[in-house]
Design a protein around this nucleic acid. Structure first.
Length: 546
DNA sequence: CTGGGGATGGGGCCC
DNA sequence: CGGGCCCCATCCCCA
């Protein structure tokens, strides 16, 4: 018995899920464009991808071999089996496609391209060094084929192999990024705005644009402000998401390009080559270690049973790309575990509570796991559990909740906080100068805005998601700061050594390295330190039993 | 190999 | 919204 159209329907569903970022568990970086996808699909399409996605959640492709426009076509091909039209002339496009397909070991696509080129009578003009196996060229990123050193993240070896200068380049005018069609992320950032119409108006009509516009999320770079360009181009996170929601298929990168002022260009080069990617590698490595460490506690080798029965791997725990379980859950639950409030059945930590820790005001409900049938209402409000057929309706509903309803009502945690606060040197307990008292805990503040900000920390929800990795934040500023780490933006440069930092405070801290100033002294042994945190860690050495 | 210190990155949170 | 500070984690170097 054959079910006609089964494969087609399945592919259609998967492509729709990709469009929404639903269950996407891997990010592919091509120059400055990001694409979300499903590991399974990629692995099923190419041995190359299969090897890559096994260990990595973030895949950086060789820009010599593939550019964002071509990769978009390729990704569409993988998910639809169809080659959609490109802006490029046919032969040129097929040449580029063939290069990329060969590189990515998409043999069917490569054969298709060859056939097209042969038919047109134009021979394939291959780029030098197309990796059959073992290309070691300009980019060590992941241009090297599988089985060599295929790890982008989580491997210090990869970091060593990757020459920072090679890891990225300043993008030229030809660089393009794709507007994201991840409606969920757009909505979660822009509650109340509608992105679906603009999505429907995408230039290609049918295919979704799955890259993320990095540029619009870039915070202004104060160091480069003299040029007067960075600021005017760099938008706020809100405008970023707006652009994500509203742009059509292609958008020019707003990152400074080759025609920038020299100073600006220099800064960007440093940001994107010397520091950014390298740090990204280190960052990924660290994250991996965290996952591994945590994984030991939660599950062997990256499989963790979540409360609703969904099995999430390290990626899902770390980077929720699809909107179900963001990293915050893992962090939150990890914290709770550490605090003796294990996220287990006996603790009474319900699914909704746990879910609510990690997403904004809504999550997709994964079909097949809900205990109550929700039918087509896949968008579920965390606080009340109601299901909605689409995110717009859910968002409208979420607005009806009062903030008070969103508070966490866990007495234990507050008493714990209070205990900690009492020991804190600068406690924030109410007094005459701090008249604004938190209704949940005992803290008080000088002004209502700060109180309100604090009260958000009691909410179940985290309203500010990172549009790249899905991690949720309570404060927009924290989220934008977090975005800098994705983008490798380090506006604060040390005049002495040129080292760059994401935060002013880090630079101040760093400057003590040059000045030799050691303002922090250990009262027990007289040891002096440049940084307070190192004094603290030193003090632990004194206090910890040995 | 191990422990301590220097230095850095990221998140939380208050101002 | 940015600055500043705290905390935790990590990497690297060196004794």
């Amino acid at each position: 018995m054959d079910l006609p159209n089964h494969a087609k329907q399945l592919l259609l569903q998967l492509n729709q899920q990709r469009a929404k970022g639903f269950l996407c568990d891997v990010i592919i970086v091509v120059e400055n464009a990001l694409f979300r996808a499903h590991k399974n699909i990629l692995a099923a399409s190419s041995m190359y991808f299969k090897s890559l996605v096994l260990h990595d959640n973030l895949i950086n492709l060789d820009t010599d071999m593939v550019n964002p426009a071509v990769f978009r076509q390729i990704l569409d091909f993988i998910y639809t089996g169809k080659l959609l039209n490109s802006d490029q002339p046919g032969e040129q496009n097929f040449n580029a496609l063939l290069t990329a397909a060969s590189y990515l070991q998409l043999h069917d696509l490569a054969a298709l391209c060859r056939k097209k080129l042969k038919r047109s009578g134009k021979p394939f003009i291959a780029k030098l060094g197309i990796p059959s196996i073992g290309r070691v060229g300009r980019s060590h990123r992941l241009s090297t084929p599988p089985f060599a050193h295929m790890r982008f993240s989580g491997s210090s070896d990869a970091a060593k192999l990757s020459h920072p200068k090679e890891l990225s380049k300043v993008t030229g005018p030809e660089d393009e990024v794709f507007a994201a069609s991840n409606q969920e992320n757009c909505h979660s950032l822009n509650r109340g705005t509608s992105s679906s119409s603009s999505l429907n108006n995408s230039i290609n009509g049918s295919d979704q644009e799955l890259g993320l516009d990095l540029s619009k999320k870039s915070p202004p770079m104060p160091v480069q402000d003299e040029a007067g360009q960075a600021d005017s181009r760099a938008g706020s996170p809100q405008s970023a998401s707006a652009s994500l929601a509203n742009s059509a298929s292609y958008e020019e990168l707003d990152l400074p390009k080759n025609n920038c002022e020299p100073m600006e260009l220099e800064a960007v080069e440093e940001n994107h080559s010397d520091v950014g990617p390298k740090k990204l590698l280190r960052h990924a490595s660290r994250k991996k270690e965290w996952t591994r460490k945590d994984g030991e506690k939660l599950a062997e080798d990256g499989g963790e049973a979540m409360p609703n029965g969904v099995i999430v791997g390290p990626l899902s725990k770390e980077r929720n790309l699809g909107g179900i379980y963001s990293s915050d859950q893992s962090f939150k639950c990890k914290d709770e575990v550490e605090n003796g409030k294990d996220n287990s059945e006996e603790s009474g930590h319900s699914e909704s509570e746990c879910s609510a820790h990690q997403n904004a005001n809504y999550v997709y409900r994964q079909e097949g796991f809900e205990t109550v049938p929700f039918g087509d209402n896949l968008y579920v409000c965390i606080p009340c559990g109601k299901g909605f057929p689409n995110s717009e309706q859910l968002n409208a509903h979420v607005e009806t909740h009062t903030e008070e309803e969103l508070y966490i009502k866990e007495e234990d945690s507050y008493s714990k906080e209070e205990a900690e606060d009492l020991s804190a040197p600068n406690n924030t307990f109410p007094n005459e100068s701090r008249p604004f008292k938190c209704s949940v805990c005992e803290r008080s503040y000088k002004d209502p805005a700060t109180l309100r900000q604090h009260e958000k920390t009691h909410w179940l929800t985290r309203p500010f998601p990172c549009n790249i990795c899905g991690k949720m934040f309570t404060q927009r500023g924290t989220m934008t700061r977090h975005m800098r780490s994705h983008l490798g933006l380090k506006p604060f440069a040390c005049e002495e050594c040129g080292m760059r930092f994401t935060r002013q405070y880090r630079l101040t801290e760093h400057m003590r390295v040059h000045s030799g100033e050691k303002p922090y002294e250990c009262q027990l042994c007289g040891g002096k330190f440049t940084q307070q945190r190192n004094l603290i860690s030193h003090l632990r050495m004194h206090t910890s039993p040995s």
